[in-house]
């Protein structure tokens, strides 16, 4: 818990870029960057903390299943983008930097092409900062 909260202060610039993605793209409700093992890294202000935790976990699950699907039925292994449509909304997820994904929750009638384009554009710009490093081998009893 503490590590994530500590990292939030250094993520101010990222927060701003996520807010920017949201405000410049019609239909986007929330933006969240998550680690591949399902933990939130940073997210836009309208999203509650509990919602962010939930979104991070389920987006990681979806991306992991997408990866298996691409390994089984695609030409090469690699996480593509995933889209889930449901009554009242849309969820899009794209790979970000190493170890991370970028997720967006949008209005049902949001323009998917534009949203995905802007997401990928953001990843191109700042993907190198959207990374989550593997954890070090644990030494006994270590706590952050």
């Amino acid at each position: 818990m503490s590590t994530i909260d500590a990292s939030r202060s250094t993520d101010r610039n990222l927060d701003w870029l996520l807010e920017n993605l949201r405000t410049k793209t019609p239909g986007i409700r929330h933006v969240l960057v998550l680690t591949r093992d399902g933990l939130k890294m940073c997210y836009t202000t309208g999203l509650e903390r509990d919602g962010a935790d939930q979104l991070a976990a389920l987006a990681a699950g979806i991306q992991s299943l997408s990866l298996s699907a691409s390994a089984e039925f695609g030409d090469s292994i690699g996480a593509g983008q995933a889209m889930v449509e449901f009554a009242g909304g849309l969820l899009l997820i794209v790979p970000a930097g190493a170890g991370a994904h970028l997720a967006v929750v949008a209005e049902e009638d949001g323009e998917v092409g534009l949203i995905a384009h802007n997401m990928n554009e953001l990843v191109e710009q700042i993907g190198v900062y959207l990374t989550a490093a593997p954890r070090q081998a644990e030494t006994s009893g270590e706590r952050p």
Binding site: T3, D37, L39, S64, R135
Partner: peptide, 23 residues
């Protein structure tokens, strides 16, 4: 399998002290 590498964000959340080989 839907195994993902445990990231540094998980330190203090996921206690892997009993299974140190687990990545």
């Amino acid at each position: 399998s839907t195994e993902e590498v445990m990231t540094q964000a998980s330190v203090g959340i996921d206690d892997a002290s009993r299974v140190r080989t687990k990545a």
